[in-house]
């Protein structure tokens, strides 16, 4: 998760409570919003005696996380009024244990309320497919139009060297549901977004085999990667024609 969001947001409050750990942060230019939840089910055990916000610089956290082995068991601990976050990595055979503390920071961040939205279009597709579309179209243009209709969803762009588009139609993969593409539509939508941000969101592709895109005209796009016990959501403000 940290790897997926560290290029978008830098200083974040990890809000800990009985439900687990949540994070909400805007990127510096206030175009995108990251919303992450890891429920208690992601941890074993999980204990939180008092609601607490752990202000962490993600670059610092990455430096420490890179010291962990892929299969290590990670324990995160913070005291009641902490100055630091304690991280312990234990190898699966328990023959190696490493321990780090990183300094916490006071982050004065405004929390935005995200209204419950009935989206006009909800599209599920393989995350690798979405990553490829964003990467391919970003070679041509800064922006992509996403047009969802009953016939399918069309990603199109135009730039200095020409234009391009990719159209996806609903498709069911009976062996692996994450490789299916589905489109639920209540009304057609057509919105334009910055590809730079979408390419950035796709760094989360390794977290989930499929990604959900939720669109309504004139509101931010929701790009959601579901995780076993939580989610990573990105909201992106649309571009509006003059």
């Amino acid at each position: 998760v940290v790897e997926a969001i560290k290029d978008l947001v830098q200083d974040c409050n990890f809000d800990c409570n009985d439900d687990g750990i949540q994070l909400q942060a805007m990127d510096n230019s206030h175009v995108a919003l990251v919303s992450m939840k890891l429920s208690t089910g992601a941890f074993s055990p999980f204990r939180c005696d008092r609601n607490i916000a752990l202000g962490i610089n993600l670059n610092s956290l990455m430096k420490v996380l890179r010291a962990a082995g892929n299969d290590d068991i990670l324990t995160l601990k913070a005291e009641d009024q902490p100055d630091s976050l304690n991280l312990v990595f234990e190898s699966p055979g328990q023959d190696r244990m490493s321990e780090y503390d990183i300094k916490l920071m006071d982050i004065d961040q405004e929390h935005l309320g995200i209204p419950e939205t009935e989206y006009a279009a909800t599209i599920s597709l393989p995350s690798a497919e979405f990553q490829r579309i964003c990467r391919d179209l970003s070679a041509l243009s800064e922006s992509v139009s996403i047009e969802a209709s009953k016939d399918g969803v069309k990603f199109s762009c135009s730039g200095d060297i020409g234009n391009g588009s990719v159209t996806l139609r609903p498709h069911t993969n009976v062996e692996d549901e994450s490789k299916s593409t589905s489109i639920a539509l209540t009304e057609p939508v057509n919105l334009t977004f910055s590809l730079k941000y979408l390419v950035n969101f796709c760094k989360a592709s390794s977290l989930s085999g499929s990604v959900q895109l939720c669109l309504s005209n004139e509101v931010p796009l929701l790009v959601e990667f579901k995780m076993g016990a939580g989610y990573l959501r990105f909201y992106l403000a649309p571009k509006i024609g003059d």
Partner: peptide, 14 residues
């Protein structure tokens, strides 16, 4: 040309 909207123009602080 199109202009980029800000996310905070859609979601209000709580």
């Amino acid at each position: 040309m199109s202009s980029q909207r800000s996310i905070s123009s859609f979601f209000a602080p709580v």
